[in-house]
Design a protein around this nucleic acid. Structure first.
Length: 456
RNA sequence: GUGGUUGUAGCUCAGCUGGUUAGAGCGCCGGAUUGUGGUUCCGGAGGUCGCCGGUUCGAACCCGGUCUUCCACCCCA
């Protein structure tokens, strides 16, 4: 065999069964998005580099796939950067476009660009692939789909409440139980930093705090100290490492710490608002939990922060996330436009559903009936019936070649087609069809109407 | 981006301290069975051992590079 072709690292092919299952997830999510009043938009797979660069932090810039300029790009390259082999600097001069890294920033760009045509508050959903030049791992790909729903143009906390409900609605529809919707608030995190007098180290502080469940209290303290946060400061917020119990109990715990921080208190108020609303309208299958260590994500979150944990028995990173960003469109010149949104990680949800065996059987079902081909005369008779069946909304097909019976039956068997229809000279004369149930092996000679009845 | 790991038939994997023609199970193709599949029996095809180079009389096996897989870190869906 010749050299086998291959696909790039971190990308995948999807076979028919996989596509069917993925579509099932897409359709389920989409149906809930629509029920909540979101409308779809789509944006290009690549954007101008300056739309994306600098929006995800230094780390993010590194993970953005850059597209090489067409033509004689070296002619226009930054020769100084080239001389000293400064990859970072030369990139800007040889690449002007980049593959989209997420759906939020392109959405912000979209809102600013089309601000005059949009009726605010604007609720949009978007399901498209994104690309990251990351090193792949389980559930981590270089091309994957995000399913986002966002609202811009409203500061109302009712949006947050609705997003919690939307998460719950989607996971309930997917029959995925035991999902935890973790919530936090940027203002609470700012409050912590303020209280300990390390306001300017907010990012370092939250990034370290975010790792609590992974590296433990000791690890977090160590990392904070490495980042230059004073030991005495860390001691002050020690209680947050040990927060336990119900949502309300945890709130009480942080209230004590944040009593001197106006920002912090505001964050608490927001969290309480959302929690109380959810208590009035209980969730179906998911659980809402406060996690003050949750920092997750992008620096532009200003209020609520969401992250979705898969059920405990599945080893998988977060399967969704989101939050409130007061000033995302500000980067593109549109001020005072608050947005809040959530995202579903389709590829990871797939892995979780697969692991827990939660895909409905019907998802992969395809053709209902296969007509055996006995020759041209019989094939014509069969195809006429196929055409009529399709008009009845029944998926049917004719085996294209008059191959051996064994081969045709085998084909039906392999494809798990539930019915095979045999129609030869005898059936043609009587205007009937021999309908064989592939599972039971039973067969009977029926007329078209009876066949439709069995197949529908 | 850093450190580690993996790659042998379509698939899952054997293959001893380097030693002739690299194996198994499953699958595939053909036949027993030319209007009856999933069971059984018989036969068959299919491998530059990820790729490139090196060491050696000799490499699937040792060494280097590269690609890929998975894992940890970074970060994240």
């Amino acid at each position: 065999m010749a050299q086998k072709p291959s696909i790039p690292k971190g990308t995948r092919d999807f076979n028919p069964a996989e596509v069917a299952k993925r579509n099932y997830i897409f359709e389920t999510i989409k149906a809930e998005f629509k029920k909540f009043g979101f409308q779809p938009i789509e944006t290009p797979s690549f954007e101008n580099s300056d739309t994306l660069m600098g929006k995800y932090g230094e780390e993010g810039d590194r993970l953005i796939f850059k597209i090489l300029n067409s033509g004689d790009f070296l002619k226009k390259a930054d020769s100084k950067a080239y001389e000293v082999k400064d990859s970072l600097k030369i990139t800007a001069s040889i690449s002007e476009k980049a593959l989209r890294y997420d759906l939020t920033v392109p959405f912000a760009r979209y809102v600013v660009q089309h601000q005059n045509e949009i009726d605010f508050p604007f609720k949009r959903y978007q399901i498209q692939p994104v690309w990251r030049a990351d090193r792949p791992q389980k559930g981590r790909f270089r091309e994957f789909f995000q399913c986002d729903a966002d609202v811009v143009g409203s500061k109302s906390l009712w949006q947050e409440v609705e997003f919690v409900q939307l998460y719950d609605a989607v996971f309930s529809a997917l029959k995925l139980e035991g999902v935890t919707i973790k919530i936090n608030n940027r203002k609470v995190l700012s409050g912590f930093a303020e209280v300990i007098g390390e306001k300017d180290k907010l990012i370092d502080f939250t990034v370290a705090l975010d790792k609590l469940d992974k590296i433990g209290e000791e690890g977090v303290v160590k990392e904070m100290m490495q980042k230059g946060i004073a030991e005495s400061a860390i001691e002050k917020i020690q209680p947050i490492f040990k927060l336990q119990g119900s949502f309300a109990e945890k709130i009480n715990g942080i209230k004590a710490i944040l009593k001197t921080s106006e920002t912090g208190k505001e964050g608490i108020k927001e969290l309480e608002f959302i929690e109380q609303a959810i208590q009035e309208m209980p969730l179906n299958s998911a659980k809402l939990d406060l996690d003050v260590t949750l920092a997750r994500g992008l620096n532009y979150y200003t209020g609520a922060i969401f992250e979705i944990s898969a059920p405990e028995n599945v080893k998988m990173g977060s399967i969704g996330g989101g939050g409130r960003y007061d000033d995302l469109t500000g980067i593109f010149g549109l001020k005072n436009m608050s947005g809040v949104g959530i995202s579903f990680g389709l590829d990871r949800i797939y892995l979780v559903l697969e692991e827990l065996n939660l895909f409905p059987k019907a998802v992969t079902q395809n053709t209902k009936a296969l007509f055996i081909n006995f020759g041209d005369k019989e094939a014509l008779y069969a195809l006429k019936a196929v055409q009529k069946l399709r008009k009845e909304n029944i998926t049917a097909e004719l085996f294209p070649d008059s191959s051996k019976m064994k081969k045709q039956m085998n084909y039906a068997n392999k494809r798990e087609i539930p019915y095979v229809i045999l129609a030869g000279g005898e059936e043609m004369e009587q205007e009937k069809f021999t309908l064989k149930n592939m599972k039971s092996g039973e067969q009977q000679k029926v007329d078209f109407a009876a066949m439709v009845k069995t197949l529908s």
